[in-house]
């Protein structure tokens, strides 16, 4: 039997990679992602501490995104994510709480750069201003006509956005983002979590 194979990204076309640039697009689909559902105002919500629309650094590189009322996406290094999820066990036995590994179901792309908001304005109708979508904001929206979860997680003061979509749309959306970013000098970074 073969050993457990490497994760296959939904982005399969070849691109000329760049390690830096004013506006970067990176495929981070292999990143571990879990979907957690609990009760609004329940013990899990209190523990995760990321109300709907916001996010929180949960330590070890894990992020908790409040993606919907009573729903969270936990992402980051596998062990850190596992730690966050494990921390929900036994909080309140009466609370209906579920968690599932969503890593394979969701593509994840990162858009980083000062022009990222202007680029995203070409594919998404959200208001990307600092007031309406500040660092740490989490939203759901149509991006190039694909339903996505979006989180802003700035990189040392530079606007940075995570875009999650159904894996099957991954290649299409990646290409759509490249098209949107061309006028801003978008570079494609090497894939990785």
């Amino acid at each position: 039997m073969a050993e457990s194979p490497a994760f296959e990204s939904p982005v399969v076309r070849s691109y000329e990679f760049s390690s830096g640039g004013p506006l970067m697009l990176t495929d981070a689909s292999p990143t571990t992602k879990w979907l957690v559902r609990g009760e609004v105002g329940g013990a899990a919500a209190e523990r995760l501490d990321a109300p709907f629309g916001s996010s929180r650094d949960a330590g070890g590189g894990a992020l908790v995104l409040g993606s919907r009322p009573g729903e969270w996406i936990v992402l980051g290094p596998a062990d850190a994510v596992a730690s966050v999820v494990a921390g929900l066990d036994g909080l309140d036995s009466s609370e209906f709480l579920t968690a599932l590994d969503w890593t394979h179901g969701r593509a994840l792309f990162l858009v980083t750069g000062t022009d990222a908001p202007r680029m995203l304005e070409k594919v998404c109708s959200l208001d990307w201003s600092d007031a309406m979508t500040p660092d740490g904001a989490v939203a759901s929206a149509s991006v190039a006509k694909v339903t996505c979860d979006i989180a802003r997680h700035d990189d040392d003061g530079t606007p940075a956005y995570m875009i999650f979509c159904d894996r099957s749309f991954g290649q299409y959306l990646f290409d759509a983002l490249i098209d949107a970013g061309n006028e801003f000098g978008l570079s494609v970074g090497p894939a990785g979590p």
């Binding site: 629309g53 007031a131 979508t133």
Partner: peptide, 13 residues
């Protein structure tokens, strides 16, 4: 208007 929109939007500042 901006104040109202921000107050109504979960993700907003």
């Amino acid at each position: 208007v901006a104040h109202r929109l921000q107050a109504l939007t979960a993700r907003a500042r």
